[in-house]
Nucleic acid binder design. Structure first.
Lengths: 142, 142
DNA sequence: ATAGATTTTGATTACCATTATCATTAATAT
DNA sequence: ATATTAATGATAATGGTAATCAAAATCTAT
């Protein structure tokens, strides 16, 4: 089942409506590069659909997160960023403090250790944040 | 060397002045419970030193971070939180999404794995964030 | 110790991403 | 097709953080 249908059914279950803007924003989000901010997506959309407002982009991204299609990230620059959720490819991020480069990494061993930590403290984990901040190889050598 | 002297020397090196407010705020910060926000500290201080303004507390906490005495944390509630830096006791945090409880955990194995991830991607790590969000045992069972 | 130079303070305002508001427009059920 | 309800888009409100500025405090050189 494609994402458009998943989103429509999600909206239907909540008594919300599948509007043309929401479909357009979903398409643009999925075809945009990952880790885009609300503003990134708004500016990108403005070229093809100048009537779509910032507030609608913002609200739709929130809905996509609630629906499970998108994940919201914060990397400390004051802009929320969004990426498509990939069920079978959980990852965390390396963030370059100089140029802003974002690299995804997968570390199943860390995930396992997290579970042990949670068990030790009798915590039921819902989600986590794990970001490594530093300099990418390019920025470290210049 | 105690923290007050460290802070004074830091200020001196930067051409800044050691004021009574800065000394008072440092003392209050060190004796406050960890993970306090600017507002927490401001309200605590107001009882004994009602003339100290919010802006001064805010600026001094930023200086303490720069000096290395404090570490700034963000747990997603929109309030920056501060805790004393402990050189030999690095830790990350479990955060209860229901009651706000914060538990510190140490996981040297995770730290090692982080170094390996960084090396793989040729990143020079400066700092990291690692937080596990969920429900504490009390909130999970009520 | 004193005077002059510079920084700090504290109150207030500005900033800016996010969120709420609301009249108009659009989607859905009957 | 119509009525009902939600969505849109422009704008204003919100709230934590940071900047501003006149008055006060600190530091340096004498």
């Amino acid at each position: 089942m494609d994402q458009t249908k998943i989103f429509s059914e999600f909206l239907g279950r909540k008594g919300l409506k599948t509007t043309s803007q929401r479909k357009i924003i979903l398409r643009a989000f999925l075809s945009s590069q990952s880790h885009c901010s609300t503003e990134d997506l708004y500016l990108k959309l403005r070229k093809s659909h100048p009537k779509i407002g910032y507030a609608t982009v913002h609200r739709t991204l929130k809905l996509l997160v609630e629906c499970g299609i998108a994940i919201e990230q914060h990397f400390g620059d004051g802009h929320a960023r969004f990426e498509p959720f990939q069920f079978d490819r959980h990852h965390d991020h390396l963030v370059c403090k100089d140029c802003g480069l974002i690299i995804e990494f997968e570390a199943p061993q860390i995930e396992e250790l997290q579970k042990m930590v949670a068990a030790t403290h009798e915590f039921m984990i819902k989600n986590h944040r794990h970001e490594l901040y530093g300099l990418c190889s390019r920025c470290a050598t210049k």
